[in-house]
Design a binder for these strands. Structure first.
Lengths: 150, 150
DNA sequence: TGCGATCGAATCGCGCGCAATATAGTCGCG
DNA sequence: CGCGACTATATTGCGCGCGATTCGATCGCA
């Protein structure tokens, strides 16, 4: 059966890699949570704000491409950020199908409050910047392969 | 030491690593979904079945320790697996606080139906077993560091 | 024996995350 | 202009995932 030299352990390796990603993601979330609670943001909301802090006036679709998320995920999340006063959702007057995301002053100000987070999380990983950079590149490459396969 | 990048990039490295884990997890899920749909399982349900196929008669708490999940996540999930006829949830007669998880014959049989999944997923990663094993070890080590930090 | 502390699981409320679907707006073409 | 195809976002239904809380069972200890 296993003419490629793999063993019974190899048979479940995908499960272990996937579970490793899955559980590392949860562990990350648990580190971020107390830091983000202080900002009144969830982790996905924080990701949205990171994108918009870099450049706002994006459409929902453009944001979804950056984050690999669907409008069914983003629309309610963005409404909550709007309700929190961090951004405005404005129909594009040239193409009323699109919704443009504009940071409010309050939304822009929150960037400063979030400035301390990266260092905290890097510290919690217990890893060097070089190691983190390599891990990141590896995971991004893996994500691209999985996208192609799907 | 080489000059390997600007400070500004370092400031956001944690975000990029975390996002890489986060989005790779979603990409994994999208690969698993069609495979698991055929079995009538979700990914978390599949993880539970993997643990129980290895050894059942665990308590909810023991299962949670293996998967790093809380009873508030597992209880409803386990009820769905019970409703699907894959396992039984039985109060331990010696300690009625605990619930023991026992696979049904149908639950045990489903193991065979799932046998093809690992190879499919490994193929989708486009990576060698050696690479996957290393990535797995790295992520598990990261998870341990994050647990300690939290 | 009694009774408070603790424990394991269950429940509740909320926010994702997505597939399927709906709705509204735009475009292409006769 | 009118109509069908297409596009962007929104809605719905379901299953996580967790913190906070509850509930019944068990333990500790006088």
């Amino acid at each position: 059966m296993q003419d490629d030299g793999s063993t019974a352990e190899d048979q479940t390796l995908d499960q272990m890699v996937c579970f490793a990603i899955y559980s590392a993601g949860h562990a990350m979330n648990r580190v971020y949570k107390p830091l983000l609670d202080a900002l009144g943001l969830t982790y996905p909301q924080y990701l949205v704000m990171l994108v918009l802090w870099e450049r706002d006036d994006l459409t929902v679709g453009q944001l979804g491409e950056r984050l690999f998320l669907e409008s069914s995920t983003l629309t309610p999340l963005l409404k909550r950020l709007e309700a929190a006063g961090l951004l405005r959702r404005v129909r594009d007057s040239l193409d009323e199908r699109q919704v443009r995301l504009l940071l409010t002053d309050a939304g822009r100000r929150r960037r400063g409050d979030a400035a301390a987070i990266p260092a905290c999380v890097i510290k919690a990983t217990g890893r060097s910047l070089v190691e983190l950079r390599r891990l990141q590149a590896e995971l991004e490459s893996l994500r691209r392969s999985l996208h192609e396969a799907a």
